[in-house]
């Protein structure tokens, strides 16, 4: 008989594990686009109010990330890329992630309402709901168009930033939404072409698997075509200007060219050169979004049309 007992390993998370639940890398996109949306708005905002607004928008985005990780803990455990996340790796208890997500959602929405205005706060609440419920619970496992509609969640932050300053919606903020919204599908499908993840094993329908890689290539090209007019239209509004227009023309031409190259490639050619073009276009898509918003920021600083 032995007196040695092996206890169930209790999850003993460190602080960084809870930070990881908030998806810091996604948060960086939220912070940047929300800040630009707020900065280019025609209403002056006190710098500290602006700082707090962006902070609580980011916190709301983080909260929806935690809710996403709580709901997706079953499929995260199956896919290689997500196995090291805090919940599937056993460092954070699922219930703790749910609690953190819910509490941070309430705090971020209430604080944004107090800091900026209640329209922006309601908008943030809707965004959290959209990402955590509409995308994660409903669309993600149901349709290969999941990332198209789910991309709306990532496209709302500049609109929320704009709403923090102005208290409403206008054509400029809707076009900033469209810029991120139509950018998301080519960005993710280019990634899906060369990342060959085990989504299907986890039961998540991805266009590359459900409809084939050639269809995904066609979709990428189509979305680069749809995206360009919205990017240029934004340049014609009050937030645009010569600098933004120049940047937008160059980047959209490059993105459409990349989409065209992806479309014209056969799968065999892509395998042969290790998906060089797909990887290049994916990298370009990162610069595409960053430089568009940076151009808006600089344009607003130096003055527009």
């Amino acid at each position: 008989m032995t007196d040695i007992n092996a206890y169930e390993a209790t999850p003993e998370a460190e602080f960084g594990d809870f930070v990881a639940l908030l998806k810091p890398r996604v948060m960086s996109l939220v912070v940047f686009t929300a800040f630009v949306g707020l900065f280019v708005a025609p209403v002056d905002v006190h710098p500290f109010i602006a700082f707090c607004s962006v902070l609580f928008i980011a916190l709301g985005g983080g909260a929806s990330g935690a809710l996403n990780m709580w709901y997706d803990r079953d499929i995260d455990a199956i896919m290689n890329r997500t196995q090291t996340r805090p919940i599937p790796s056993g460092r954070v208890d699922g219930g703790a992630a749910l609690g953190l997500g819910l509490v941070l959602s309430v705090i971020s929405v209430m604080m944004l309402g107090l800091v900026a205005n209640w329209f922006a706060a309601a908008f943030l609440a809707f965004t959290i709901f959209f990402y955590a419920v509409v995308y994660t619970v409903w669309l993600k496992r149901w349709t290969p168009q999941n990332i198209v509609i789910g991309g709306a969640a990532g496209a709302f932050p500049p609109m929320i930033g704009w709403a923090c300053a102005t208290g409403g919606i206008s054509i400029e903020s809707v076009l900033m939404f469209a810029l991120v919204f139509f950018w998301t599908p080519p960005h993710f499908w280019a990634l899906a072409l060369f990342m060959k993840e085990d989504y299907h094993k986890a039961g998540v329908p991805m266009l590359t698997v459900t409809h084939g890689r050639q269809v995904a290539r066609r979709h990428i090209f189509a979305y680069t075509l749809v995206l360009a007019p919205f990017a240029l239209w934004l340049g014609l509004t009050s937030v645009g200007g010569p600098l933004y227009m120049a940047v937008a023309v160059v980047l959209n031409a490059a993105f459409i060219r990349g989409g065209w190259q992806i479309l014209r490639r056969a799968e065999e050619t892509a395998i042969a050169d290790g998906y060089a073009v797909e990887k290049r276009v994916f990298k370009l898509s990162l610069y595409y979004l960053f430089l568009h918003f940076l151009a808006l920021l600089v344009q607003s600083w130096i003055g527009g049309w």
């Binding site: 998370a13 460190e14 602080f15 809870f18 930070v19 500290f48 707090c52």
Partner: peptide
Amino acid sequence: RKSRNVGLGVVLIGFVALVFAL
């Protein structure tokens, strides 16, 4: 455990400072 406690402490103090500045 300590990193969790210290982290939460810093966050709470930061939040109080933020509300005060606001």
